[in-house]
Simulated scan of single mutants.
Amino acid sequence: MSDSQIVVSPSWLLEHLNDPQVVIVDCRFSLADPQLGRRQYQESHIQGSYYLDLNQDLSSPLGEHGGRHPLPNPIDLGHKLSEIGVNYQKTLVVAYDDSRFAFAARLWWLLHYLGHENVAVLDGGFTGWQKADYPVTNIIPQPQTASFVPQIQTNKIVDIKTVKNKKDLPEIVLVDSRESDRYRGEREPIDKIAGHIPGAVNYPWQEVTDPSGYLLSPVEQRRRWEELATAEEILVYCGSGVTACVNLLSLELAGISKGKLYAGSWSDWISYM
């Protein structure tokens, strides 16, 4: 699947590499090695793309609460987006990574949260781009001058208080996006406490794509969520509010615009325990 407003194919992006209305953002990152994505970008990236770092750009510093990847300061992120040429509500942003949208979807969701809906992800990511033998470079593009003034969409997010108040209501579904063994509490490689929020159902984020990092078709995305389609709201979380965004991307592809992010996620939830 490709070339919708939500996702573009490598061939589409190749044709728009020099389009002044398109800004490409490299979101590669590794939780195990936080500098790896930046090193990879400096070595080789899609021609003309800029780099935004999960920790430095797409999150704010850790606090006592708020999870491992608190949402970034909207004004700070707006300045960074301006500097890479993103004009609010005008520029098409195309985000990519090489982790099955684990980090590109975070930027995709953040832009929607800031009121900028003109954003897509690159199907297949950087690996798919390389397999197509499309151009890469190590040249870092120059800063740009643009204007990005965020307009926060508060209806796209929930906090711990809202989750506690709503999670057991019959019309509300709480979705845990982590791998099933982490959901069940059998394995916890990152957080201090294993398990899941009581009442949550498990939809692992890796199921949104095939093993090569290509999104399943809209029909398959709809089939994936069919049991939850009648819910009034779907509250989505993961470990720290990053890979949950892959499920929110999936919900949009399925035509279900009821998803909201519990940004602090499990790491915020257990900070109160």
Rank of each mutant, 00 (worst) to 15 (best):
residue 142 Q to I: 03
residue 142 Q to A: 11
residue 144 Q to D: 12
residue 145 T to N: 13
residue 147 S to G: 05
residue 147 S to M: 09
residue 152 I to R: 06
residue 153 Q to H: 12
residue 156 K to V: 03
residue 156 K to N: 10
residue 157 I to L: 13
residue 159 D to C: 02
residue 161 K to H: 08
residue 161 K to R: 12
residue 162 T to K: 13
residue 163 V to Q: 01
residue 163 V to R: 00
residue 163 V to S: 00
residue 164 K to A: 03
residue 165 N to K: 09
residue 165 N to M: 03
residue 166 K to D: 00
residue 167 K to C: 05
residue 167 K to Q: 10
residue 172 I to Y: 01
residue 173 V to N: 00
residue 175 V to R: 04
residue 175 V to S: 02
residue 175 V to M: 05
residue 176 D to C: 07
residue 176 D to H: 08
residue 176 D to T: 04
residue 177 S to K: 14
residue 177 S to H: 07
residue 179 E to A: 13
residue 179 E to C: 04
residue 180 S to N: 12
residue 180 S to T: 06
residue 180 S to K: 15
residue 183 Y to L: 07
residue 184 R to Q: 05
residue 184 R to F: 02
residue 184 R to C: 02
residue 184 R to Y: 04
residue 184 R to N: 05
residue 186 E to C: 06
residue 187 R to V: 02
residue 188 E to G: 13
residue 188 E to D: 11
residue 188 E to R: 09
residue 190 I to D: 07
residue 191 D to P: 01
residue 191 D to T: 06
residue 192 K to Q: 14
residue 195 G to P: 14
residue 196 H to M: 04
residue 197 I to D: 03
residue 197 I to F: 06
residue 197 I to C: 02
residue 198 P to A: 01
residue 198 P to D: 02
residue 199 G to Y: 05
residue 200 A to F: 01
residue 203 Y to M: 11
residue 203 Y to A: 11
residue 204 P to Q: 02
residue 206 Q to Y: 10
residue 206 Q to D: 12
residue 206 Q to E: 14
residue 206 Q to M: 10
residue 209 T to D: 04
residue 210 D to T: 13
residue 210 D to S: 14
residue 210 D to V: 08
residue 214 Y to P: 07
residue 214 Y to E: 08
residue 215 L to D: 04
residue 216 L to T: 12
residue 217 S to A: 14
residue 218 P to R: 15
residue 219 V to K: 10
residue 219 V to P: 01
residue 221 Q to S: 09
residue 222 R to E: 05
residue 223 R to V: 05
residue 225 W to H: 10
residue 225 W to P: 12
residue 226 E to A: 06
residue 226 E to C: 09
residue 229 A to C: 06
residue 229 A to I: 04
residue 231 A to E: 04
residue 231 A to H: 01
residue 232 E to L: 05
residue 232 E to M: 10
residue 232 E to N: 15
residue 233 E to D: 13
residue 233 E to A: 12
residue 234 I to V: 07
residue 235 L to H: 03
residue 239 G to H: 13
residue 239 G to C: 10
residue 239 G to E: 13
residue 240 S to I: 05
residue 241 G to I: 03
residue 244 A to Q: 11
residue 244 A to V: 07
residue 245 C to A: 10
residue 247 N to Q: 12
residue 248 L to K: 14
residue 250 S to Q: 07
residue 251 L to F: 04
residue 253 L to Y: 05
residue 253 L to T: 11
residue 253 L to P: 03
residue 253 L to I: 08
residue 253 L to E: 08
residue 257 S to R: 15
residue 258 K to W: 06
residue 259 G to S: 13
residue 259 G to Q: 13
residue 260 K to H: 07
residue 260 K to N: 05
